[in-house]
Design a protein around this nucleic acid. Structure first.
Lengths: 205, 205
DNA sequence: GTGTCGATTGACTGATCAGTCACTTCATGG
DNA sequence: CCATGAAGTGACTGATCAGTCAATCGACAC
């Protein structure tokens, strides 16, 4: 795939992110995407097999970025707590930079039947695998409590971040101005640090 | 609305939950729903205005149940921690009893454009309001840390539960047999109790 | 100047489905 | 036993759209 092709695909993908975020996947017309991208309707099908393929491509491309960041955090973060903080921070910065993308990844991708194939599951779970490694290392180093399974810790962390961003994206009653993303991020980190901490371990049955 | 009408509506709603859970809202045909319910196609439109109306009715009816349970927990739970536990326990028990319903509430309802009207937001946020009261009381009684806002605590709790149930519903790589719901529930409670606990408050900057 | 081939175009088509509606059946009460 | 209207029926329709395809463009080679 040459440079020009990659660029054109990217233009279409970014247009699709915008359109999907605005109207939701099923209400979006492929014609809307081609208009937004400034290409002919038929060109979409030159670069992608189908509408589904466009959505799945968005996921695959951007999810790989996320996995890369987890890897980077593993390598550069001083300790498990810092590594966790880096991942959470990256997700919130991604939201600030491109709320539309997060909306699509959180709301549209998981609703597509075709998304659930072995290839995508593998990719999806790679992110969780990276997080689990962080928790596992934290337990071995005696930083994180040993009585919480890394897999549950992973889901709890992911859920906390996911649900919060959902509020930013959808809840009109949630005051974004009075509650900036940075504040939300810090509070989540605070709760998770305490929740996973070794120090609290003996205090609950 | 007389008894017979209520019953018939309920039959249709339950059939719809099954169909939506199986194929997803957009891939479900209204004909599938009438077949599943054992009523004529046209009858659906006697009891409901539209396909959207069916999905929203599912949400409204069942969400009111959830809100009632939060209220009940507020009245019967000994302390904030117990009350929180009762709510979490109710959600996990709902999943065990009717996984299809949870799947629809988590995945299909939030993806419907028509869902996002003021009436539904109000109902949706009533649940969060109830949870916030629990956290607020916990802070006043000195059980929960004062430096985590009740609203964030609410989202974190909701997200943790939501993300975990999502794994049960969707992730084929997640081993449900080796990790029963009760275990997941207990670990979430453990992490949240520690995370929100007053005792950990001074240990993080 | 001419040939080749991938990129680009958008009008068209075939299939799909939510919702309608004219009709039938049933229950109730006078 | 009839009248009335609510409940129930399912064939049909009108609108919608994803995806196709035959035609055109344009860049590069020889």
């Amino acid at each position: 795939m040459d440079e020009a092709t990659t660029q054109k695909k990217d233009i279409i993908l970014n247009a699709a992110i915008k359109v999907f975020a605005e109207k939701g996947y099923y209400s979006s017309r492929t014609l809307d995407i081609s208009n937004e991208a400034g290409v002919a309707y038929g060109s979409l099908y030159h670069y992608f097999r189908s509408k589904d393929d466009i959505l799945i491509s968005i996921f695959q491309e951007r999810w790989n970025l996320l996995i890369g960041r987890v890897q980077q955090a593993r390598e550069e973060g001083a300790g498990p707590e810092q590594q966790l903080g880096m991942v959470i921070d990256f997700i919130f910065r991604s939201y600030r930079q491109n709320p539309d993308l997060l909306k699509v990844l959180i709301m549209d991708v998981p609703r597509l039947d075709k998304f659930y194939n072995p290839e995508n599951w593998k990719l999806y779970n790679l992110f969780f695998r990276g997080l689990m490694e962080i928790f596992h290392e934290g337990q071995e180093k005696g930083v994180f409590a040993a009585d919480v399974s890394p897999i549950m810790a992973t889901y709890i962390m992911h859920g906390a971040v996911d649900a919060t961003i959902r509020q930013y994206v959808y809840n009109p009653e949630f005051n974004k101005e009075e509650f900036p993303v940075e504040e939300a991020r810090d509070q989540i980190m605070k709760v998770l640090r305490r929740g996973f901490s070794k120090k609290g371990e003996d205090e609950t049955s």
